[in-house]
Design a protein around this nucleic acid. Sequence first.
DNA 1: CTGCTTGCAAATCTTTTGCATTGAA
DNA 2: TTCAATGCAAAAGATTTGCAAGCAG
Lengths: 143, 143
Amino acid sequence: MKEQTLFKKILRDSGYSTTKARSLIFDLLLGSDDPRTMHQLIEATEGRIDRVSVYRIVELYEKLGVAQRINIGWKYKIELSDVFLDHHHHMTCLDCGRVVAVKDEPMFEEMIERLGQANRFVLKSHQLEMQGYCDRCRSNAAQ
Amino acid sequence: MKEQTLFKKILRDSGYSTTKARSLIFDLLLGSDDPRTMHQLIEATEGRIDRVSVYRIVELYEKLGVAQRINIGWKYKIELSDVFLDHHHHMTCLDCGRVVAVKDEPMFEEMIERLGQANRFVLKSHQLEMQGYCDRCRSNAAQ
DNA sequence: CTGCTTGCAAATCTTTTGCATTGAA
DNA sequence: TTCAATGCAAAAGATTTGCAAGCAG
């Protein structure tokens, strides 16, 4: 199913309407490879949507599982959820700030599952964030 | 080495002095099992330290590797770094908010290492955050 | 002593709330 | 048409900055 169609279906099924503002935010998220900060997202609307609405829309997307916040350093960024992007994790370069999406291995998922059971948790989600220096930056300067 | 001693040594070695304010924040972090939000930390000082100083001290602790921010849901919390606590990860209950520290397996560390190499990153740190429902909450209501 | 630290005041930035108006179905 | 969604104004909350006074070494 085309992303936009699935997106509209999710809204409709949950009793929300598809509006110009909601579609724009969705397209902005779909259009960028990298997660976006709230600030970037608001900038990207170029005043077409009020900042308050951006907050409200992102909040809704999180509730519906359309988007998720991920934590990069001290800040958070927004990206589409696993429904629209493959489940993955992030590796951030401490020097240039580049964020690489890392597909995870089945073995990793199994391990997460085991950790949950060992603590008697029924796990719903998880995030793995890694930081280090990418090859480009490493060849430029000694860390 | 006793925690306080190591703490003072880290400050001294980096050219910072040990002050009443810095010791208090350190003790507060050392005294609680769970990570603390900035808000909780400020409350815990009971006005003995200005909120601005708390921010500045926490910032310094992060720079020196004494403490680290961890992301719990949308917010972040502060806890002592691996220098003072064993390296671990967090499992948060989506219902009651309880945070469980999870010791990780050597296998996990190996996997992280491999992921780094595969992406030509030299990894320096990583965090794994898991969310789900704990056994207490699960037995109270159906999720 | 002397410069690093802190407190205080205030600026700035981020996020939330209330309410009147607009627009999707 | 009708109620949900948006914009606008403003409040509330979080974080940062500048500067004078205080304290650790």
